[in-house]
Amino acid sequence: GSSGLPPGWQSYLSPQGRRYYVNTTTNETTWERPSSS
């Protein structure tokens, strides 16, 4: 899909309704949208 996220990243919603991002390669999580640069 065209999520616009860098490879390996997925976006999720927290129980509070906030969006966060997870790097499935490194298990890093961040509130900031990852850049593909």
Rank of each mutant, 00 (worst) to 15 (best):
S35H: 11
V22Q: 05
Y21I: 00
S14P: 01
L5F: 03
Y12D: 03
S37R: 09
R19F: 10
L5R: 02
G4D: 14
S35V: 14
P7E: 11
G4P: 14
S36H: 13
T24D: 07
L5S: 03
G8D: 07
P6K: 03
S11I: 09
G17W: 02
S37I: 13
T30W: 07
G1V: 12
S3W: 15
R18E: 12
T29K: 13
G4K: 10
S35K: 11
T25Q: 13
L13H: 05
L5W: 04
T29F: 15
S35T: 15
E28P: 00
T26Q: 02
W9D: 00
Y21S: 00
N23E: 02
R18G: 07
S37H: 12
W31R: 04
P15V: 06
N23P: 00
E28R: 05
E28V: 07
T24L: 14
L13S: 04
S14W: 01
G4C: 15
P6Q: 04
G1R: 08
W9S: 00
W31K: 03
E32Y: 12
E28G: 02
L5D: 06
Y12A: 08
Q10P: 01
S37E: 13
S11R: 04
T30N: 03
P15S: 09
Q16T: 15
W31S: 05
Y12H: 08
E28D: 05
P15A: 09
G4L: 10
Y21D: 00
S2Y: 08
E32I: 14
Y21G: 00
T30L: 08
S3H: 14
T24W: 09
R18S: 07
Y20L: 05
T25G: 07
E28H: 05
G8T: 04
N27Q: 11
P34W: 02
T29R: 14
N23A: 01
S36F: 15
T29I: 15
Q16P: 02
W9F: 03
G1Q: 12
R33K: 11
P34Q: 01
P6H: 04
Y21M: 00
Y12N: 04
S2M: 12
T25I: 15
R33W: 09
R33N: 09
T24P: 08
S36K: 09
T29D: 02
V22S: 03
W31G: 03
T26I: 03
S35N: 12
T29M: 15
T30Y: 07
N27I: 02
G17P: 00
P15H: 06
Q10A: 12
S2N: 13
T30F: 09
L5I: 05
S37Q: 13
R19L: 14
N27H: 13
S35R: 09
G1E: 14
T24H: 10
T29Q: 09
W31D: 05
Q16F: 09
R33E: 07
P7A: 11
Q10F: 14
T25P: 01
G4Q: 11
T26P: 00
G17H: 02
R33L: 10
T24F: 09
E32Q: 11
N23I: 01
V22D: 00
Y12E: 04
Y20D: 00
W31L: 06
T30E: 02
W9H: 00
V22M: 07
L5T: 04
P34L: 02
P34N: 02
P7C: 13
S37D: 14
T24Q: 10
E32T: 11
E28I: 07
R19H: 06
P34R: 00
S11D: 05
Q10L: 15
Y21Q: 00
P6F: 04
S11K: 03
G1C: 15
Q16R: 10
S14H: 05
W31H: 06
S11T: 12
G1T: 12
N27K: 11
N23Q: 03
S3P: 12
G4M: 10
Q16W: 08
Q10G: 05
P6A: 05
L13F: 08
T24N: 08
Q16A: 13
P6I: 05
Y21H: 00
Y20A: 02
S11N: 02
G8M: 05
L5A: 04
S36D: 12
W31I: 05
T24K: 09
G17M: 03
G4H: 10
R33G: 03
P15Y: 06
G8K: 04
T29Y: 14
Q16N: 15
G1P: 11
S37L: 13
S2K: 09
L13T: 08
E32N: 08
V22E: 01
R19T: 11
S35F: 11
E28T: 07
Y12W: 07
G4R: 11
N23M: 02
R33C: 11
S36V: 13
Q10H: 11
G8R: 03
S37W: 13
S37M: 12
R18Y: 09
Y20R: 02
R33M: 09
T26W: 02
T26S: 05
L13P: 02
E28M: 06
Y20E: 01
T25H: 14
N27S: 09
S2H: 12
G8F: 07
L13R: 06
R18I: 15
S37N: 13
P6L: 06
W9N: 00
L13D: 05
R18H: 09
L5C: 05
N27V: 02
T25W: 14
S3L: 15
P15G: 05
V22Y: 12
Q10W: 08
V22P: 00
Q10R: 15
S2R: 09
V22A: 04
S14T: 15
N27T: 05
P6E: 04
Y20W: 06
S35A: 12
V22K: 07
T26E: 02
L5V: 04
G1H: 13
P7S: 08
E28Q: 07
T29P: 03
N23G: 00
P6M: 05
G4V: 10
S14A: 04
G8Q: 06
N27D: 07
L5N: 03
R19Y: 12
G17L: 03
N23S: 04
P7Q: 08
P6R: 04
V22F: 10
Y12I: 06
P34E: 01
S3M: 14
V22G: 01
Y12S: 04
G17N: 05
P34M: 02
G1N: 12
E28L: 06
W9T: 01
S11G: 06
S3G: 14
G17V: 00
G8L: 04
R19N: 05
T25A: 14
T30P: 00
E32M: 09
E32W: 10
S14Y: 01
P15N: 06
S11Y: 06
Y20K: 02
G1I: 13
W9E: 00
T30M: 08
P34Y: 02
G4T: 11
G8W: 06
T24I: 13
P7F: 10
Q16D: 15
S36M: 14
G4W: 12
E28W: 05
G4I: 10
E32F: 13
S36Y: 14
Y12V: 07
G1F: 09
E32K: 11
G17R: 03
S3N: 13
L13I: 12
Q16S: 15
S37G: 13
S3D: 14
S14N: 12
T25R: 12
W9R: 00
T25K: 13
Y20P: 00
R18L: 10
Q10N: 09
T25F: 15
S36G: 13
S35D: 12
P15T: 07
E28Y: 06
G17A: 02
S35L: 13
P7V: 09
L5G: 02
L5H: 03
T29W: 15
P15R: 08
N23L: 03
S2T: 12
T30S: 11
L13M: 10
Y21V: 00
R33T: 06
T30D: 01
S2V: 14
P7G: 06
Q10K: 15
